[in-house]
Amino acid sequence: MLNLLGGWGLQALTRLGRAHLLLLPLFRGLTEILRRPSLLVDQLYSVGVLTLLIIGVAGLFVGMVLALQGYNVLSRFGGDTALGFMVAASLVRELGPVLTALLFAGRAGSALTAEIGLMKATEQLSGLEMMAVNPECRVLAPRFFAGLLAVPLLAALFSCLGVLGGWMVGGGLLGVDQAAFWNGMQDGIDFNDDIINGVIKSLVFGFVCTWIAIFQGYDCVPTSEGVSRATTRTVVHSSLAVLGLDFVLTALMFG
């Protein structure tokens, strides 16, 4: 039993080591991307554009729900002018970065893992190596930087549409004073403390989610079962990492 546990721990550690070793060629691939930006553009399409819809819809609805729930609580003690602030603060500080990262892991991260895993299983990565093309720089790095760039933008969009949804429900449906809604929001949300910190959060999440997705695909057992397990692992590990990191980052930033 102890043996089993030790073996498992050792395996986890070597995997962690391999994941970190992968970072070096990923960043070395940056020169390749700067030389040929079209590599990045292609990946931004699959990682960013295709994720746009789910992020937009989710953001809008989360904002609407926040406004409904927030109004219920705030109106009890006549604080419904703080609705705008409440909606925007929850979105910008927490829900925007976190939910975007979770949706990204499910939508784009799993697709990345499956794509890279299948490329490995069908020997496409080996083929690249034999053509004297480094798959880490040529295949993995553009996907990595596309994810890194896309997540903060998607999170910003999520928050914006969330505020819009909150305003539609708060101002339109519940009849909260519009000027109070916007003024309360603009007074309460600080650019440095809230917006910048939110963007930093989503950068970190984008880094971690894309890194996990790429590593799991690259490190998977090259069979159909191996790819499917790697895909599941991507979603689970990304979600846990995002939630854990969110706690740490929140404690550091707002604590």
């Binding site: 553009v41 931004l44 399409y45 933008l153 910003a156 928050s159 505020v163 600080d190 650019f191 917006i195």
Partner: peptide, 21 residues
């Protein structure tokens, strides 16, 4: 991708100018 980047940066801009102080 151009549209995506434009929307993303517009959202960042709105966050800064319309939602924050």
């Amino acid at each position: 991708v151009g549209v995506f980047m434009a929307i993303g940066f517009a959202a960042l801009f709105l966050l800064a100018m319309k939602i924050s102080n």
